[in-house]
Write a protein that binds this DNA or RNA. Structure first.
Lengths: 141, 141
DNA sequence: ATATTTGCAAACGTTTTGCATAGTG
DNA sequence: CACTATGCAAAACGTTTGCAAATAT
C-alpha cells in the first residue's frame, strides 16, 4: 500500500510535466518512508547509502520542485530546514538534547480556539504549526 | 513600569558581567518594546532611526549574548530568524501574504494534552511553540 | 526530437571568527 | 586598570543561478 501511495505521487509528478529520474524517485521514496521531518543533510546521507551522490543543487532544486507542487512541505526547527510529505496533519516532539524529531498525532481540538481567535482579531486562519520541545525517552537522564 | 522591566533586564546583564553600552541598551529597549517577534533586519532599521549603525557582527553577537542569558529567545518563521523578549508565553499569527506577525494570548489548554502525550510516549515536554498561518485583516481581500 | 534534469562553478546572502582598538565599570 | 564590546575584514556556511551536457518521454 505504501507502494501505491508512491505511485500516486509519481503520477502527480508526471501530471506536472516532470520526468521520473532515479534521483527523484529515491528522494520521494526516502521522504515518504520517513513520514516525518527530514533535513537536507539526512536526505543526502541516505541517498549515499543507496548508491546515489547527487549534487547539492540538484537536491535543492528537487525539494523546491516538490514543495511547489504541494507534494512535500518545509518546516524550520532549531534553525534547520526540514521537509516532510504532505499527508496527514500532525505535530512534532523535538528533543532539546539529541535534536531527534518524532511525530505526534493528537486529536488537536484547535479548531475551536482558531474560531475564537478569528472572531476576535479578524485574522483568517488557514493552518497551524505546533511543536513540543523537551527530552526524549533516551535523553531524559 | 516598562522602564522598571528594562532596568531589571539591565541588572540581569550586569549580573552576568555584561556592560551597559548604548548599543546594547537600545537593542534591549527595541526588542522589549516590540513584545513580539522582530527580525535582525527590522532591528537594524530601528537602530538606524535612533542614530545607531552598528556592525552586523555586533548585532549577531548581541543577540547570541541575550539568548545565552535567557533574556530573549529565537524563533524561525518562514526561513527567517526572529527574536523576542522572554516574558509572557504566547503564540503567533503569521500572515501568508504580507508576512506580518502579531501575538495571540489564548488560554491554551495544551497542558492537558501535553500530559497525555508524555504518558503515551515517554517524552518529557518542557515547552511548546504554536503558530497560526493565514490572512491578516489587511490581506483578506 | 523536445523538454526536463543534472553537474559544475560561480554568485549570493547570512552568520561566524580573529584580531586590534575603543569603551565600560 | 582589567575586562568586555566593537569594527573590520576574512572565512564559513547554506542556498541559488546560468549554462552546457545528459537523460527521460
Amino acid at each position: 500500500m505504501s507502494k501505491l501511495e508512491i505511485d500516486k505521487i509519481l503520477n502527480k509528478v508526471r501530471s506536472f510535466g516532470g520526468r521520473i529520474t532515479p534521483t527523484r524517485k529515491n528522494i520521494i521514496d526516502i521522504i515518504h518512508s520517513r513520514e516525518c521531518l527530514i533535513s537536507h543533510k539526512e536526505l543526502l546521507d541516505i541517498l549515499k547509502t543507496r548508491g546515489f551522490d547527487p549534487n547539492r543543487s540538484t537536491i535543492f532544486r528537487e525539494l523546491s520542485f516538490l514543495i511547489n507542487n504541494n507534494i512535500i512541505k518545509k518546516n524550520n526547527l532549531n534553525s534547520t530546514e526540514y521537509y516532510e510529505i504532505q499527508k496527514s496533519h500532525h505535530h512534532h516532539l523535538v528533543c532539546s538534547v539529541c535534536n531527534s524529531i518524532t511525530k505526534v498525532e493528537m486529536d488537536s481540538d484547535l479548531s475551536k480556539q482558531e474560531k475564537i481567535i478569528s472572531d476576535h482579531t479578524g485574522f483568517k486562519i488557514t493552518e497551524h504549526s505546533l511543536e513540543f520541545y523537551g527530552f526524549c525517552p533516551n535523553c531524559k537522564s
